[in-house]
Amino acid sequence: MELMENRLIAGHLVHGNDKVKWTLGDNNHIKNFTEDDIERITRNYRFPVGKGGFGEVYRGFLDDEHDLVAVKRYIRGDLREEFLEEASIHSNHKNVVRLIGYCIGESDLTMVNEYISKGNLDDTLHRNNVSIPLDIRLGIAIACAEALSYIHSMHLSSDSLVCHGDIKPANILLDYNLTAKVLDFGLSRLLSGGITRYTSNVKGSIDYMDPIYLQEGRLTPRSDVYSFGAVLLELIARRRVKEGNVSLIGTFCKACAEGKGLRELFDAEIANESNVKILGETARLAAECLRLDIDKRPRMDYVVKHLRMFWKDLQGGQDIGWHKKSFGIFKRHVGDK
């Protein structure tokens, strides 16, 4: 299918008159589907599985009933720029949901991604009672932090950086090997002209949202850092950041300021003597991420470095092979659910 405004060439997405390019890397494995292909893959959009920031998501099948994919159809056809941004982000990192193909039709924009069958982090933490050791939780945090560090380093055009804009446990998927993969970049923003964007159209999940973004419309990569801090806190507390009128972040910040009550916030399953030092360091890192002064929050590469150090300390100096070890531990607890 010949694309009028957007086309894929030699590793780049090109928009309009070639003034802006979004790098896709080696796109030999990214398929250009037709509209008929998408209807066949989705069985005429028979199996809806949810909605993202800009689109509806369907379960689909590539070649047989066992080759599952997730098909995201953008709700509006005039979101081509956002579509190209999201496609570019999805194509290049092991901890971002993998892009399989795309379709730009007359009225529809469609993206075909890998289907992650084990559900999201929100379900794993809060909708079952499965045991989750600390090394698995740190591994999930590391994978998510690496994905954010990656997208924060992207330049989708000559003067623009990217942030996700809606980091929360429901947007972190876990695959069969318990590798965390970040999704729903439909809310990702180009930070044109530098590293900050102001908007009156604030979007995202309020419970995890940077207060500066919520109150002032100021969005930067460090807005993601705040949201990640909230996710990291949920990982070690195994409580939602907001339950009724109770704010986990508020309780946590008060405990940090008073220097007491912090240990009581940790999930009892992992709050043993052998873990308490690592938990304390992880909590301090979460507190850095949750600082109200946006300029004092760390960069995501700093967060990745320290989380890796915590994991290594937890393992007695071993390099991080958490994706293999964690899978074995988790599988013994969960079986093949």
Rank of each mutant, 00 (worst) to 15 (best):
R308G: 04
S274K: 15
M209C: 07
D122T: 14
L68Y: 09
R46Q: 09
A10N: 12
D135A: 08
S247G: 07
S274E: 13
I249M: 02
L290K: 08
C256S: 05
I104V: 13
V202A: 01
F252W: 14
L214Q: 08
I100H: 02
K51Q: 14
R46Y: 07
G139Q: 01
E86F: 00
N28C: 11
A170W: 05
L125F: 03
I136Y: 00
S192V: 15
K19W: 11
T124C: 12
A170G: 06
S188L: 06
V130K: 13
R218H: 05
V334L: 01
V241C: 10
D159S: 10
L290W: 06
N92R: 15
K305Q: 10
A237S: 15
S160H: 03
R297L: 10
D336A: 12
A257N: 04
D184L: 02
L148M: 10
K305F: 11
A10P: 00
E273W: 11
R332I: 05
V246R: 10
I172A: 01
L173V: 05
K305A: 12
I116V: 15
E81T: 13
S227V: 04
P133M: 07
I140Q: 01
R137M: 00
N44D: 11
R137P: 04
T42F: 01
K324A: 08
L190Y: 11
S149P: 06
S157Y: 06
T42N: 06
K19L: 15
G52E: 04
L13A: 12
V130H: 12
T220W: 02
K277P: 05
A87N: 12
I75A: 10
I142T: 02
E146M: 07
L191Q: 13
F33K: 01
R76D: 11
L121I: 00
G204V: 00
D210I: 02
N44F: 04
N272K: 13
G16N: 10
D36G: 13
R284F: 04
D293L: 03
L307M: 09
S153L: 05
G194E: 07
F33S: 02
S326R: 08
H323Q: 15
N120E: 01
G194F: 07
D63W: 14
F185D: 03
Q215S: 14
N245V: 11
R291F: 00
